[in-house]
Design a protein around this nucleic acid. Structure first.
Lengths: 114, 114
DNA sequence: TTGACATATGCCAATACTGGAATATGATAC
DNA sequence: GTATCATATTCCAGTATTGGCATATGTCAA
């Protein structure tokens, strides 16, 4: 057996740093952006941009609209809400700084001892 | 050329559904949990649990403490804050969606009232 | 020491993901 | 029609990741 579910979901989609970058550029743009505009902004090969957009589209993180021979992409933030909610449910855990420091020190000691 | 950066970061760590499950069980527990307790709760083979814990440890999502021959794991929610912040920065994109739904509902109500 | 318990690690096979280049599709303009 | 622009898709190679099993490490108890 092998690589597990790989359910192509939102979490998997945003695991790729480049995909987050794509979303970030689109967010700054605010409205719609053509693929070419993204290619310009990001400086990546066009097929690479298109492929990342395809993944984002499949999980519903972006939506597309045809406009002449261009395709206008728009962020669909809706799909990020579950991520937000999930992370937020751990809010109570990010206040115990003493605990964190202690844990890190132990981890470091463990690794150095090897 | 291959599988890209794969910078083993927080986003990649939580991309695995099972890893989120591990965190969720630990969060419900509230405090510390031994590996065996996780194995019991999850019903997975022990090596699998240990390996997922190792990944979570490497990115700092959990911390470990020795207690006799057990290892007590604890959620380190601190590392989830960046995820929370990033998703939150897209808040306006899902509020926008809400506005649109609200607008449509009002429109519908107005038409029904006629 | 020996043995049992708790956890981590190493090795392997299978797979799925990414980037790259070439090519296909689709739409406009001439 | 043909040429050109904009974007998507296909095929490929390389690699990272996962699960499964076996085994190693580490700790306590008798």
């Amino acid at each position: 057996m092998a690589r597990a579910p790989t359910t192509l979901d939102t979490f998997a989609a945003i695991a790729e740093p480049k995909r987050r970058q794509v979303l970030d550029v689109m967010a700054v743009g605010g409205g719609e952006l053509a693929v070419n505009a993204l290619v310009q902004s990001l400086g990546w090969p066009q097929p690479q941009v298109s492929k990342h957009l395809a993944v984002l589209r499949e999980v519903g993180l972006v939506s597309v609209r045809r406009k002449g021979r261009e395709r206008m992409y728009r962020v669909n933030g809706d799909q990020l809400k579950p991520v937000y909610e999930w992370a937020k449910s751990y809010e109570r855990f990010w206040q115990h700084q003493l605990e964190r420091i202690k844990g890190r020190a132990e981890e470091h000691a463990r690794r150095s001892a090897k």
